[in-house]
Structure formats: C-alpha cells, structure tokens
Simulated scan of single mutants.
Amino acid sequence: MSDTKDKPAKKGNGLVIKLVVGLVLVGAGGGTAYGLMAAGIIGGGKAEARETGPQLIRKGEEDPYAPPAGKGKEEGVAMVHGDGGNEFRTAYYTFGEDFTSNLKNSGGLVQLSLAASTRRDGRVLMWMNEHELAIRSRILVELADTPEEEAYSPEGKQALQKRLTAAINEVLTEQEGFGGVDNVYFRSFIVQ
C-alpha cells in the first residue's frame, strides 16, 4: 500500500515543476523579446523610420537642422515664422538662377525663377542645396514636357507646380530617401 501513496505525491510534484519551468521559459522569452524591441532590433520599424526622416517643425520650436544665424540667405534659404494659419513654420528655398527651356512641340520658350517650401526641418533645405544640380536637371525635363497652351493658362500653371513639386521630391527621395517639399512657387514666369 505504501507504493500507491508515493505515486500521487510524485505526480503532483512533477506538475508543479513543469509549471515553474514553463513560467520561467515564458518569462525569459518575454524578457528577450522586450530587450530586442528596446534595442530596435525587432518591431517598431515604422516608428524608427518616422523618427529618422525630416520632422514637421511647429512655430516656435527649435529646428536642430536650421542653418546658423546669418547663414543661409546666400544659399537661398528663408525661414518664415508667421502667426497665422498653419501651426507649422514654413521654410523657403530659392533657386539662385532662372530656368529657361523650350516648350513641348512648340517654338516657344519659358523662362522662370522658382522657390520651394517645406514645413519640415532644415535637412530638406540642406538636401535641396546639396542636390541642386540634379533637381535643376529634373525641372528642365518637366519644363520641356510642358505644352505651350498649358504655360498660358492658370490651370496649366497649377498643374506644372504640382509636377515640379513631385519632380523635386523624386530627386530628393532618390538621393536622400525622403522628399519633404510641400510646394513650388513661381517668382517669375515668362513665355516667349
């Protein structure tokens, strides 16, 4: 009879041991997963990509990538911190030289000067300055693909603005992995 009394006691102890070992393994697995997430090795990839790209800058916030005081105007950079409208500050990049191009299927020419705006941090402005040659080339391609009648109408000019904005963002994305230009503005626009 003593044999039967010992067997149930062993089964109960085995169950407790299995539960303790299982809890330790689950705890170790959870701790490992937490450590890998905290280190950025797993999970959070989208949040990390959002943190590394140029961030929107609210009015009154410091831009860690803004050009130092007094620098930037010679590079065509202007910061605007108005009180109205949007909660984000706008920074402008002015291209130093005009653009001149023939128009699509026409003997006409277009000459214009441009500026571009961003509400993101100063990296977008730095990248525009750094890759201005590639951006200028891409803009000239877009201008050469513009029909003359489109260059005369307000709707055509608005469509051209959108195409130029997309073109600049494509170049910046190819070069830096992020666009960031919100709009393009015509400072002058002449069709001959």
Rank of each mutant, 00 (worst) to 15 (best):
S113R: 15
E74F: 03
F95K: 12
G76R: 10
G72V: 06
D98Q: 14
G76E: 09
L103K: 09
S106L: 04
E87N: 02
V77A: 04
A78G: 00
G82R: 10
G60M: 00
R119N: 10
R58L: 15
E74D: 15
Y92D: 03
K73R: 11
Y65D: 07
G108P: 01
K71W: 10
S113Q: 14
M79L: 10
T90I: 14
D98W: 00
L114Q: 08
D98M: 10
P64T: 13
G82L: 11
Y93F: 15
T90D: 02
D63V: 08
G107E: 14
F88A: 07
E87I: 04
G84A: 12
K71M: 09
F99D: 03
D121I: 02
A78H: 06
P64L: 10
E97N: 13
L103A: 12
F95W: 09
L56N: 03
A115R: 15
G70E: 06
T118R: 11
Q111R: 14
G85L: 11
R58H: 14
Y65C: 01
G107T: 15
G82F: 11
G70R: 08
L112Y: 06
L56I: 08
Y65M: 09
G82V: 05
G60P: 01
S117L: 03
N102T: 14
G107C: 04
P68M: 07
S106I: 02
E97L: 09
K104W: 15
V110T: 11
S106N: 01
G108D: 14
V80M: 13
D83I: 04
H81Y: 08
G76D: 04
S113M: 11
G70V: 06
G107N: 15
